[in-house]
């Protein structure tokens, strides 16, 4: 009995299962939105401390990154304990390696800039945001991230000619166009797919 099904039915099963196995885009959207909002809040806080409050240690705002990192470690540990991850995809792996590499690069670059000077650091950070979102967009086959990555590279070029305060504002702009807007679009498209 079970072998009596048509080639069309076979193709329908194959298509339906391949669709069901697609990457968990909602999870990816969470990370983009989490880091996007966190870095945006940090940049705005630093800008306010620097320009309006005129606090000399305005860069202390970046210590909020540690709060984000600790939260994510706890979240991952909790997910593992609750056995939430029932499937592993190659895209999950690629994203993990890409963002681990970039995360380490951000910290190393931050350290290098702290030792030397911060003049062009924001351009370099924005450029790296561009790499991350562009490559992620290619992995996920999601155009808004690819466009966001290209825009981040353009903003990085502009930031190279701007002063420190304006570099902070340009970083905010880069985060909005390369993380936050595409992140919400990814979440929205995932919700629509699963209606």
């Amino acid at each position: 009995m079970e072998n009596e099904f048509s080639p069309e039915e076979s193709l329908r099963i194959i298509q339906s299962m391949i669709d069901k196995a697609k990457n968990n885009a909602a999870n990816d959207a969470f990370y983009f939105l989490f880091w996007g909002w966190l870095t945006l809040i940090i940049c705005i806080t630093q800008y306010v401390l620097l320009v309006w409050v005129k606090y000399p240690q305005h860069y202390y705002a970046w210590s909020l990154l540690w709060v984000g990192l600790i939260y994510l470690i706890f979240r991952t540990a909790l997910n593992n304990k609750q056995k939430k991850q029932k499937v592993k995809t190659y895209i999950d792996d690629s994203m993990k390696y890409l963002w681990t590499g970039l995360g380490i690069t951000f910290f190393v670059l931050g350290w290098i800039c702290a030792i030397n000077e911060w003049r062009n650091c924001f351009s370099l950070f924005i450029m790296l945001y561009g790499v991350g979102t562009f490559v992620s967009g290619c992995f996920l086959k999601f155009k808004p991230f690819i466009i966001g990555g290209v825009l981040a590279w353009i903003i990085a070029l502009i930031a190279a000619t701007a002063n420190y305060q304006n570099q902070l504002l340009l970083t905010c702009l880069a985060i909005v166009v390369s993380y936050i807007i595409p992140g919400y679009m990814l979440r929205y498209s995932y919700k629509n797919q699963n209606k």
Binding site: E2, N3, F5, E9, S10, I13, I14, S16, M17, I18, K20, A21, K22, K86, V87, K88, T89, Y90, D92, D93
Partner: peptide, 18 residues
Amino acid sequence: HSQLRLAIISLLIGVKEA
């Protein structure tokens, strides 16, 4: 050529492991 076995293989073809 069995509905469930084909579904399993089609699911596994797109992921690393499940």
